[in-house]
Each structure stands twice: as C-alpha cells, then as structure tokens.
C-alpha cells in the first residue's frame, strides 16, 4: 500500500552537509503496525515527514496505493495530507486557541468546501465527539489544550489525526514526552485502532515501545537496515 523507494535527504548547514537519509526504502501493508526504530538523530522524523508529504526528498519517491506522492500537483499532495494521512507528533501540536472539539474537527473543516460545510457541520461535530469518546476524552470537549495533561493532549491529537478516517496513521514518538504509564495507555489506544484495521507507522527510539508492533525496522546510516518481525502481521499472514 505504501512504498518508499531510495529516499535521500541532505541538509546543508553552512559548509557542513548532513546526509540524513541516503537511500532509505520501506514499505507497509494495509492493516500493518510498523515501527521504525533508530537512535536519536538518525533521521526517523525526517523519514516519517517524507512519508506524510510534510517534506520533499532530494531523491527517491513515495508511492501510495500505487501512485507517486511527490510527482503530483501540490493541491493533490495537500489532499493526501488531509485525507490519506493522519499525523501524531511527539509534542502534540494542538492549536491553542481552539477547544478540544474544534481541534479535532479542524482537518474536516479544512477538507470541506465552505458551502458544503454548512450542511455538514452537525455530522462532523458528531463524528468528532465520537472520536473523542473512543480516545476517552468525551468529557473534556470544551477545554483548551493548555488545560489538559500531556497524555490527554496526545489523545486529542490522535482523535484529530483519525477524524478524516485516513488510510495511514503516522506517529512520531507519540509517547516520547509521556511517562511510562500514560505512554502505555497511548500505545494500547494505537493497538486498539490497529486491531480495528488502521494501518499505523510509528517512530520510536524505545525498544520496549516497539514491542507492540507487527514488524520493526531499524534506521541506521540513512538506510533501513534490519527488519525484525515481532508478531505475525495480518498482512503477512
């Protein structure tokens, strides 16, 4: 379903050039829970950003459902970000002026033309409410992000990532900023969504966190190195 081929990414900082990715290739199947492991600074986030089309590779391409992500119009790439991918960040990245419910709704709002929105509003609200219920936050809809704990914020971020029912959920160290217990809750939520059929690609440097995946890959030296199956993936079975 998702294939990244020979991705290259180099950052130039003054005289120094940092080859973050040099020919990374990876693929994920539908329904799979894939974890990308790697030490800090190895380029995991960079890779995940490329998969989610938040950045453009110097070389190589990502194809999604057989179609190139980078050889298409900007607008269709924006649609890809809006509909096909849900992103969960390490630092939650919620919009502070909006309430929890509004934060969850915003991807839907972005993806809907103004006129259509008027008729669609109620439905979207209901879906957002349901999404929040699934992450266990239905009682905090009116709160602002800064009134929530880190774990709660990450749940909101997950609800936001999933509101448009994306094919792909990309999570960049979603537990990196949380303590073990709360992190475990987030992971079990991810598992729950994955069990319901959601494809998940998660980045982490924590081997214990990686254990919940179907499959682990390791990013070293700008390449995907070893592939460690953890538990049988439905896609491989």
């Amino acid at each position: 379903m998702l294939r990244a081929d020979d991705l290259h990414k180099t950052y130039v900082m003054g005289k120094a050039t940092i080859n973050v990715l040099s020919g990374a290739s990876i693929s994920a199947e539908k329904g799979e829970f894939l974890v990308i492991l790697g030490s800090s600074g190895s380029g995991k986030s960079t890779l995940l950003h490329l998969l989610g089309a938040l950045d453009i590779p110097d070389r190589g391409d990502v194809s999604f459902q057989g179609q190139s992500v980078f050889h298409r119009s900007r607008q269709s790439r924006e649609d890809y970000r809006n509909r096909e991918v849900g992103f969960v960040f390490q630092f939650y990245h919620l919009l502070p002026e909006l309430t929890v419910l509004e934060n969850v709704i915003i991807p839907r709002l972005i993806g809907t033309p103004a006129l259509k929105w008027l008729s669609h509003r109620r439905e979207a609200k209901k879906e957002a409410q349901m999404m929040l219920e699934r992450v266990g936050l239905s009682h905090r809809v009116k709160h602002r992000p800064n009134e929530l704990s880190g774990g709660e914020r990450q749940r909101v971020a997950m609800a936001r990532a999933l509101i448009n029912k994306p094919t792909l959920l990309l999570a960049d160290e979603p537990t990196g900023n949380l303590d073990e217990k709360i992190g475990a809750e987030i992971l079990s939520l991810l598992n729950e969504f994955n069990d319901a059929g959601q494809t998940v690609i998660m980045v982490t440097h924590d081997v214990r966190v990686a254990a919940c995946a179907h499959r682990q890959v390791r990013l070293t030296g700008g390449k995907i190195e070893s592939v460690v199956p953890t538990r049988p993936s439905p896609a491989l079975a």
Binding site: Q75, N82, I110
Partner: peptide, 16 residues
C-alpha cells in the same frame, strides 16, 4: 509559525 505548520500538516493549502 508552528500553528501554520500544523495547519499545513493536516492539509491546509498555501492559499488557504
């Protein structure tokens, strides 16, 4: 800037 990045990450267009 960060919020604009978020909006773009969830699919907002440059014109938007």
């Amino acid at each position: 800037t960060r919020d604009i990045g978020i909006l773009k990450a969830i699919g907002a267009s440059a014109q938007g």
